[in-house]
Amino acid sequence: MNKTEATLKERLKELTCLYEVSSIIGDANDDFVEDTLKEIVFSLKRGFQFPQRTNCSY
């Protein structure tokens, strides 16, 4: 994979993460704020360049 492909792949991950977070917020229920925040945290982890090296806790 060349540098351009790698850059585009990372950008796609970032945009997917933003879409997931906005969808989670759009579907959020005020009664389940903690669950919503957990979903956001795990979605953000997948958006990082090296998610396997990223540690997210809630």
Rank of each mutant, 00 (worst) to 15 (best):
M1T: 11
M1P: 15
M1D: 13
N2F: 05
T4A: 13
T4Q: 07
T4N: 09
A6L: 11
A6S: 13
A6Y: 02
A6T: 07
A6R: 06
T7C: 13
L8W: 01
L8R: 03
K9N: 04
E10I: 06
L12V: 03
K13P: 01
E14V: 07
L15K: 13
C17F: 15
L18F: 02
L18Q: 14
Y19Q: 13
E20N: 15
E20C: 15
S22E: 06
S22R: 08
S22Y: 10
S23C: 15
I24R: 00
G26F: 03
G26N: 04
D27Y: 03
D27S: 13
A28P: 15
V33N: 00
E34D: 11
E34N: 04
E34K: 02
E34A: 06
E34H: 00
E34Q: 05
T36W: 05
K38S: 04
K38M: 03
I40V: 15
I40E: 04
I40G: 09
V41E: 03
R46E: 14
R46T: 14
R46Y: 00
R46S: 14
G47Y: 03
G47N: 07
Q49F: 15
F50Q: 09
F50Y: 15
F50G: 09
F50R: 12
R53I: 02
T54N: 06
T54E: 03
N55V: 12
C56R: 06
C56W: 02
C56F: 10
C56I: 09
Y58I: 00
Y58P: 00
